[in-house]
Amino acid sequence: MKALAVLPWWLPAVDAFAQPTPQKPLDERLRAAKVERGGLSLDIPTLAETGTSVPVVLFVDPAKLAGRTVARLGIIAPQNPRPVALELELGSVLAQPRLTTAIRLGATQAVIGVAQLSDGTLWQHAIEVLLTGSACFDGT
């Protein structure tokens, strides 16, 4: 279990996105994690004028929770110089598992939203974002 703890919690969701048809997970240790689509929605413009500020809304359909709670929300931008854009632990005061903010994007890419439920299930939603201007002007 120690080894599993060092792997980032959102990794299976990114892995599932990279392999649309279910194949062997990148790592054997991830096999236990269940990745589903449909419960989480990532709301992000598909055409962003500038990467320096792209508005995002990440929200979970409460009807699909079935008694579970959302433990973590994450946004992964694989083509960014730092791919893990945002990772949050959610607390008990929240009335809705919903996050509104703005992120930076370095390139045209599929942005992946991930939610981890209290039972370990991962919900994933990816949106292809076309960028006309990058947040990185230095060739990174």
């Binding site: 500020s53 973590r72 945002l86 949050l88 632990e89 607390g91 005061v93 996050l99 994007l105």
Partner: peptide
């Protein structure tokens, strides 16, 4: 009681703005 705790904020914009719904 926690509302949220950010673990990573690599790609938040300058002057980060976050909105949550609470009760």
């Amino acid at each position: 009681q926690p509302v949220f705790n950010a673990l990573t904020m690599n790609a938040l914009t300058a002057n980060p703005f976050l909105t949550f719904v609470v009760a």
